[in-house]
């Protein structure tokens, strides 16, 4: 597939060694358009939108951010911890704006699902419907993400 200069720039930004050592595509050899399209189809199947998921992630992230050192238990069933790193990172979609470097460690205490995301993940999901490629460190499978954030029985 021939890419426009803008798509090429985005694609390069997503590769390992451009914005981060590991990149955003993992071992996934699909084009980022295909990753977004296929995850969008999954979202439709499980009746939730990318924005709804991102808003829930933002809710937990905000709560954990206030407790700057250590974990917080939210609503008696979610354990969330925010680990800050120095600096900011840009969005690989060349979206103007910078995002804090950090990792949010999340555990749903009811169904045991554990996830790790970054502030950039929230933006990419909300604005671009991009959950990263399979095998990427911060890939968030939409089905698991929904189960983790909203609870939907055990895995």
């Amino acid at each position: 597939m021939k890419e426009t200069p803008s798509e090429l720039r985005i694609h390069n930004n997503m590769k390992a060694g451009y914005l981060t050592v590991e990149g955003f595509l993992g071992k996934d050899d699909r084009h980022f358009h295909d990753i977004i399209r296929e995850d969008h189809a999954v979202l439709q199947k499980i009746s939730i939108s990318a924005v709804q998921l991102a808003e829930r992630m933002e809710y937990f992230t905000g709560k954990a951010f206030e407790i700057y050192d250590g974990a917080i238990i939210i609503d008696e069933k979610f354990r969330v911890e925010y680990k800050s790193y120095r600096g900011k990172i840009i969005c690989p979609f060349a979206h103007p704006g910078v995002f804090r470097k950090g990792e949010i460690f999340f555990k749903n205490l009811e169904n045991g699902i554990e996830l790790c995301w970054t502030p950039l993940n929230i933006h990419m999901i909300a604005e671009h419907g991009f959950f990263e490629g399979k095998g990427s460190k911060h890939r968030l499978d939409p089905v698991i993400l929904k189960q983790a954030l909203f609870g939907n029985g055990d895995l």
């Binding site: 914005l19 981060t20 050592v21 790193y85 120095r86 990792e103 460190k137």
Partner: peptide
Amino acid sequence: IRLVPAGICTT
């Protein structure tokens, strides 16, 4: 300098 996981400069 504190390590930033997957950070280009700190790696």
